[in-house]
Design a protein around this nucleic acid. Structure first.
Length: 452
RNA sequence: GCCCUGGUAGUAUAGUCCGGUUAGUAUACGGGCCUGUCGAGCCCGUGACCCGGGUUCAAAUCCCGGCCAGGGCGCCA
């Protein structure tokens, strides 16, 4: 199946009068009767002998327009076309197996609606790949490349699949605030905003507000939205602004209920991509498989032993570093043949105050999802008992006053609950094997880049 | 926040160590040839040393600062 949703949801069947086109280019089939009208960007022009070939592209595909010398005005207009001009064309669809692009159009009229200057400021031939910086400076043109656009189409399907799963499983979509009055953990890495003369911040995670909605009794929710990190990270896997699919659910037995939802969510997103984005995946040369469930789970303190066997010494009670993360991913791939896995029972001392501690131990019911060797989410069971939360805030050396707005609500009956937030761009990056997360978002925000 | 590497035509690069010819190549772009191109091919042409300061007879090249880019670590999604 081709990527129907990307076309038919907008097919111009609703009239046509006044619309520039009667068809998406990708929907053209040999043998279509009568005249079709298409519009798009000139992808390529080539003169050979008495022919002038023009490739026309819209988001659905590419077709070839062939004009012969002697076609009068049409040939003249065709001769003046340049790369990336935006044009509307009327013509008939011919069956020409000789045209590798697919179908061929014999035009009766060509109208130039917008000329493109040339040469373009980045490579569009595909022969001399422009650097990422140049591409991002000229992102709208960069995204005209079907491969680059495919990433965004796939991401849309991924999120849609996840939403379908959540909606059909009784999760309620909510929108929690992006502007907050205080961080979730003290917050050195928050962007500050002037809020009518008061200090406000862009959220780094919708975490605490989701928990308050559990206190409210919404029971199962998700929040799809942006988060910001003011960390000046220069890596291929960090953005200062990213989106997450943040899920929270109550009435759980323990953190394992959370992990079950999370792995189903990821699998559902990937299944949607496989089903709906066959041509986009082919374009990117990605062979995607729905991950087997359940995902493998590694638990602390066993993780230390595994790492030591792999020749990596992580001191007892310490967090995983980047190398450890990658080693564990290799270990899981080798022993479980899986690209995704959970790490559970992180040391309590390296996790924030709101996590639930496993009774009488130094471990927390705190889980990370790792995919493709990269941390995709953090989550687990949260502490829902008022006294414990207060105690843990003290243990972490935080100022209780700063968290009163959150904690006080737990004095009036809170259900056991847990959740997680999956980074959308990171998940996209991992399933497509992208080298840089900036390719997984149309207009990335990094420490130096704020435009376009 | 720390560390490493880089910035040369529209794009992507060679040249930089070891200062000194007309700054080379590919691609894009413009012109020409070619009776079906599809990374077509062939010929001709236009076009560049990030910014500021310093050293020197002389700087793309060496030194300092800035800005930007890519990456590693930290932190995280």
């Amino acid at each position: 199946m081709d990527s129907v949703l990307f076309r038919r949801d907008l097919t111009d069947s609703h009239g046509g009068a006044g619309m520039l086109r009667s068809h998406y280019i990708g929907d053209l089939k040999p043998g279509m009767s009568g005249e079709v009208r298409i519009a798009g960007w000139v992808d390529r022009v080539k003169d050979v002998g008495r022919f002038r070939f023009i490739w026309l592209r819209d988001r659905s595909g590419i077709c070839q327009i062939t004009v012969e010398r002697g076609q009068g005005d049409v040939y003249d207009v065709a001769s003046s076309l340049g790369i990336h001009d935006f044009v509307a064309i009327s013509g008939t669809v011919l069956e020409k197996p000789i045209a590798k692009v697919g179908v061929e159009i014999k035009p009766t009229r060509i109208t130039i609606l917008s000329k493109s200057e040339s040469p373009l400021p980045l490579d569009v031939s595909g022969l001399v790949k422009s650097g990422l910086a140049t591409r991002l400076d000229w992102r709208p043109i960069d995204l005209r490349d079907p491969k680059n656009m495919a990433v965004l189409k796939i991401q849309a399907a991924l999120v849609r699949g996840m939403q379908k799963y959540l909606d059909s499983s009784g999760f309620i979509q909510v929108f929690t605030p992006c502007l907050i009055g205080a961080g979730s953990e003290g917050g050195a890495e928050l962007f500050e905003v002037d809020y009518f003369g008061r200090r406000a911040y862009l959220r780094q995670d919708p975490q605490l507000h989701r928990q308050l909605l559990m206190v409210a009794g919404l029971d199962k929710i998700y929040d799809l939205g942006p988060s910001w990190r003011a960390e000046p990270s220069h890596t291929p896997r960090h953005l200062c602004e990213y989106r997450s699919c943040a899920v929270e659910l109550s009435f759980i037995e323990d953190e394992r209920d959370v992990m079950r939802v999370e792995e189903e969510l990821v699998a559902a997103g990937i299944r949607e991509v496989i089903e709906m984005c066959e041509s986009e995946l082919r374009l990117l040369g990605v062979e995607l498989e729905a991950p087997r469930r359940p995902f493998p789970v590694l638990e602390f303190p066993k993780v230390y032993e595994i790492l030591e066997d792999l020749g990596k010494k992580v001191p007892w009670g310490e967090d995983l570093d980047r190398e450890a993360e990658k080693l564990l991913a290799e270990y899981v791939k080798e022993n479980h043949n899986h690209d995704f896995f959970f790490v559970n029972k992180f040391p309590y001392k390296v996790k924030p105050f709101y996590v639930m501690r496993e009774d009488g131990t130094e471990w927390a019911r705190s889980t990370d999802l790792i995919g493709g060797g990269l941390e995709l989410s953090s989550g687990g069971q949260r502490e829902h008992r008022y006294e414990r939360i207060v105690q843990q805030i003290r243990e972490k050396g935080l100022n209780l006053e700063d968290f009163k707005w959150f904690v006080e609500h737990f004095r009036y009956g809170a259900p056991p609950h847990g959740g997680f937030a999956i980074g959308i761009e990171r998940l996209t990056m991992v399933i497509l094997g992208l080298e840089n997360i900036r390719e997984a978002t149309p207009f990335p925000r990094t420490p130096e880049r704020l435009l376009p």
